[in-house]
Amino acid sequence: MKLNIKNTIGITAFLVSQAMVAQFYVGVQSGIGNIQSDVNGTSSGYELGGAIKVGYIYSLSNHIGIGTGIEFSQYKQDVFLSNSSATLSNFEVDPSTSAFEYRITASNYKERQSLHAIQIPLFVQYKTNINKGIDFNFRAGAKYFLPVNYKIKATATNVNGTAYYPDVNLTIDDLPEYGFGSQSNYSASGEYETKGIVMSMFELGFTFDMGAKNALYAAMFLENGYGSILDQDKDESYIGYNPTSVADRKANGLYSTDKNAKIRPVAFGVTLAWNFK
Rank of each mutant, 00 (worst) to 15 (best):
M20A: 13
A117F: 03
K53R: 14
S61F: 02
T128A: 08
G205N: 04
T207K: 12
F138C: 05
F221Q: 08
N131V: 00
N149Y: 10
Y192D: 13
I9P: 01
I9T: 14
K132W: 01
Q183Y: 11
S187T: 12
V21I: 13
Y241I: 05
F123L: 09
R249N: 12
V246E: 07
L3D: 15
E203A: 08
R249K: 15
R103E: 11
K259R: 14
N149H: 11
I11K: 12
V54F: 09
T207R: 10
A117W: 02
N149C: 01
T162G: 02
S114M: 07
S96E: 13
F80E: 14
T194F: 00
Q125Y: 00
T162M: 03
V159K: 04
M199D: 13
L146K: 13
D231S: 15
S189H: 09
E203F: 02
Y241T: 05
F14A: 14
Y165G: 02
S73W: 02
A212V: 08
V16D: 13
R249V: 08
L272M: 14
D167N: 14
K6C: 07
G196S: 15
Y144V: 15
I263A: 10
V39S: 12
P243D: 11
F276W: 11
K259W: 02
S228V: 07
A163W: 05
T87V: 13
S245F: 08
S84K: 10
Y238C: 07
I52L: 09
S228I: 07
G179Q: 01
I120N: 08
I130F: 02
N40I: 09
Y164C: 03
L15I: 15
I104V: 15
P147Y: 02
F208W: 04
S59C: 01
L175W: 10
F138L: 14
S114K: 15
S98L: 09
F145H: 14
R112A: 12
I52M: 10
K153D: 14
V266C: 00
T257N: 08
N137C: 12
Y186C: 07
K277I: 03
A251Q: 05
G161Y: 09
Y46A: 13
G41I: 06
G55P: 04
G50R: 02
T128G: 04
L146G: 07
F208G: 04
V124H: 02
A140G: 12
P265E: 11
S114H: 12
D78L: 09
G179S: 04
P265W: 06
F123D: 11
M199K: 15
Y102P: 08
V159E: 05
F180Y: 14
Y58W: 12
K213R: 10
I229K: 06
F123C: 06
Q119P: 01
F180L: 09
